[in-house]
Computed example of a mutant assay.
Amino acid sequence: MSHGFQALVRRLERAQAIQNNRFNRAAGGRSLPLGGGFAHFLGEGHPLNQALGLVDPLSEDELITVEAFLGQPTVLELSPGADPDLWPLLAERGYRLQQFQQLWVRPLAGLVVSEGSTTVRVAEPREADLYSRVVSAGFMERDDWQAAEPPFQSSLDVPDAWGFLVFVGGQPAGGGMLGIVEGVAMLSGDGVMPRFRGRGLQKALIQARLDLAQRRGCDVACASTAPGTASQRSYEACGFGAAYPKVEMARG
Score class of each variant (00 low, 15 high):
1 M>S: 13
3 H>F: 04
4 G>I: 07
6 Q>D: 13
7 A>H: 10
9 V>N: 00
10 R>D: 13
13 E>S: 08
13 E>L: 05
15 A>T: 06
15 A>E: 05
17 A>D: 02
22 R>A: 09
22 R>K: 12
29 G>H: 04
30 R>Q: 14
31 S>R: 06
34 L>G: 09
39 A>M: 04
40 H>E: 12
52 L>W: 01
66 V>W: 04
69 F>C: 03
71 G>R: 02
76 L>M: 08
79 S>D: 05
80 P>F: 03
90 L>M: 15
90 L>T: 08
100 F>T: 12
113 V>K: 02
120 V>D: 09
120 V>P: 05
120 V>A: 10
122 V>S: 06
122 V>F: 03
123 A>W: 08
132 S>D: 06
133 R>Q: 13
140 M>K: 12
146 Q>F: 03
151 P>Y: 11
152 F>H: 12
153 Q>S: 13
153 Q>T: 11
153 Q>K: 12
158 V>A: 08
162 W>P: 03
177 M>P: 00
177 M>F: 07
178 L>P: 11
182 E>W: 04
185 A>S: 11
193 M>H: 01
194 P>Y: 02
199 R>E: 10
202 Q>A: 12
203 K>V: 09
204 A>W: 03
209 R>Y: 13
209 R>E: 11
210 L>V: 13
217 G>H: 08
219 D>V: 14
220 V>P: 01
225 T>G: 06
226 A>G: 12
229 T>E: 10
232 Q>P: 00
233 R>E: 11
233 R>V: 01
234 S>D: 15
240 F>G: 09
250 A>I: 13
